[in-house]
Design a protein around this nucleic acid. Structure first.
Length: 565
DNA sequence: TCTGGGGTCCTAGGACCC
DNA sequence: TCTGGGGTCCTAGGACCC
């Protein structure tokens, strides 16, 4: 272990909720809960204001609604979170080439490897500068932990939350850890925690005193040894920048259990296609197909099948998934289905055949079908989800507060505006369309990588501070200037409903969605249409590096790439 | 209170091979 | 002929993380 606190862990504060508050001025200082809005949704992130009521991530949404009935409940907008995450990761890469993202809102940085820090003093400086830069570029806050190892840096950032920095001085680690509960250590979850408690071990000190043999006996070799080392503040894991994906999977939890076996089969086919799209999108193929089934009683089982070689052929993967389903009893109903592929490679067996064969077999019909389904025509079903970005031909940009009974309520405000007003429309109002997120900070020198705002949003000198930003609100300034005449759509003009907007009190931003209203129409799962629910983040970064070859094919190292046609 | 989605790693048993 | 040990692969399940 190094003797200077030069491993940095960054953790953005209540990331999803903080992004929503930055985007929606009426929600600042309010309880905001981001997550699945369906009957089986769970909380992805709760703002600190919502945590006061006891709401926390992974909690069932129904429970959150009971605890904080007046909070704003919003669907996650992953596209925006990813764009902001990319801005943050870019700042980290300015500190060091060794950046290891753990999720959209978390990463390790090896400051020493970047030459950015070599002792306590320089590490603290780098950490504080990073926090300031993140605030300037994104308008958000992040907490920083600095220590001599990954484990300790992560514990430090946890202690620093929210909006702080904690540095653990080398030499003090063991004393600091000793009184902490075992659950503080990464890798100790509910099951291990219980296990240890039954053995009379509740603190890190007791863990350290138990001895390695005892821990191995209790928890198994790998876990026991790892925990014993961590309890003694020993952690030599390096910061690793590029990690290759090992599996790709998709799954859906249904609002209502599926009993119809035929329907179960159809869903599995859909999931197989979706999985293939993800696989291909990452330029990968895989050998092992996995089917996951969660039954009505939450019991979960998996079935897998390994092919002779890797594939990304939708027909092959669908058939494998169907075969696997044959071996599963689904009587009683199914609440979740999933399809995954592991044993990944960055080439397919077909590629190898193609090398040998002069003529490539062309385009199976499946491919076209998959492509077509990839683009979910959003106009097909006009469903408005709480939190979603929209634009109105007359009123400009806003977001959906709620919908139901054929109406949709929109609050018109932007990241740089004052808290906006609420108006209600028919759900099929032609003047209303979904829109791209607006950038949180209007600064052209750090544009988000997702589709940005109309040019008019970026005109002028960007504000540098939150105060300055607040002073320069341009109410609806960009509403009229996007695009040309084609922007005025529909012939019927604006069709505002009779209740046009009971403009709400500015203080009432909390009631953003009425429980249950956004999920009208049976078991249609509206909020997952675009990206699916998620908690704080989803990993799945897939590097463009060539995946290693399956051992059986590659002789020794497996790093030498197969040349592609 | 009733439990998401996307991952990683580990364990354990059986098959198979040497 | 009987007994065996080690290594790798496959499958299933479980814990954990965000």
């Amino acid at each position: 272990m190094r003797n200077a606190p030069t491993i940095l862990h960054l953790d953005m504060d209540a990331f999803f909720a903080a992004v929503e508050q930055a985007s929606k001025p009426s929600l600042r200082g309010k309880a905001v809960v981001v997550g699945g809005l369906g009957p089986r949704g769970v909380v992805a992130t709760a703002s600190y204001e919502a945590r006061v009521f006891g709401v926390h991530s992974a909690m069932p949404m129904a429970q959150a609604r009971r605890l904080a009935p007046n909070a704003a409940y919003l669907v996650p907008r992953f596209t925006l979170y990813r764009a902001i995450s990319e801005q943050v990761m870019a700042l980290l890469r300015e500190l060091s080439p060794l950046v290891e993202p753990l999720s959209l809102d978390e990463a390790f940085v090896d400051l020493e490897a970047g030459g950015t820090a070599w002792d306590e003093e320089s590490a603290r400086r780098a950490g504080e500068k990073l926090r300031a830069d993140i605030r300037a570029v994104t308008g958000l806050t992040g907490s920083v932990g600095l220590a001599a190892s990954k484990m300790l840096a992560k514990i430090a950032s946890e202690q620093a939350k929210p909006d702080g920095l904690v540095l653990i001085e080398p030499g003090t680690e063991r004393d600091m850890l000793a009184p902490m509960p075992v659950r503080t250590l990464p890798g100790v979850g509910p099951a291990t925690g219980d296990h240890l408690r039954r053995a009379g071990i509740t603190t890190v000190r007791e863990l350290a005193e138990a001895g390695e043999d005892e821990l191995v006996r209790l928890l198994g070799k790998a876990h026991g040894q790892a925990l014993y080392a961590m309890a003694h503040a020993r952690d030599e894991r390096p910061v690793v920048a590029e990690r290759e994906a090992k599996s790709v999977s998709v799954e859906d939890t249904y609002d209502v259990d599926i009993h119809d076996r035929l329907r179960v089969g159809l869903e599995v086919q859909r999931l197989a296609d979706r999985c293939v799209r993800r696989l291909r999108g990452a330029g990968l193929s895989g050998r092992t197909i996995v089917l996951k089934v969660r039954r009505y009683d939450f019991s979960t089982l998996t079935r897998s099948e390994t092919l002779r070689g890797p594939t990304d052929d939708p027909a092959v993967i669908r058939e494998a998934a169907a075969r696997l389903l044959d071996s599963v009893d689904t009587t009683g109903g199914v609440r979740l289905l999933g399809v995954g592929v592991s044993g990944l490679a960055d080439y397919t067996q077909e590629d190898l055949f193609a090398q040998a064969m002069p003529v490539r077999v062309v385009e199976e019909p499946e491919e076209a079908a998959v492509e077509a389904e990839a683009e979910q025509p959003e106009a097909a079903e006009r469903q408005w989800r709480a939190g979603q970005d929209v634009r109105h031909a007359e009123y400009g940009p806003g977001w959906v507060q709620g919908s139901g009974l054929g109406r949709v309520t929109v609050r018109f405000e932007t990241p740089q505006s004052e808290p906006g007003r609420v108006r209600t429309f028919f759900v099929d109002d032609p003047a209303l369309s979904s829109a791209e997120p607006l950038p949180l900070v209007a600064d052209p020198s750090h544009p988000p990588t997702c589709p940005g705002p109309p040019n008019s949003a970026r005109r002028g000198v960007p504000p540098r501070t939150p105060e300055e930003r607040r002073d320069r609100e341009e109410p609806r300034g960009r509403a009229e200037s996007r695009g040309g005449p084609d922007e005025v759509r529909g012939s019927g003009g604006v069709r505002v409903t009779e209740e046009v907007c009971a403009t709400e009190e500015a203080g009432d931003g909390g009631r953003a969605s009425v429980p249950g209203e956004v999920r009208a129409r049976g078991d249609t799962r509206i909020w997952e249409r675009e990206e699916g629910p998620g908690r704080e983040e989803s990993r799945g970064q897939v590097s463009s590096e060539p995946a290693s070859l399956p051992k059986s094919w590659s002789g020794s190292g497996g790093e030498e790439a197969v040349s592609r046609p």
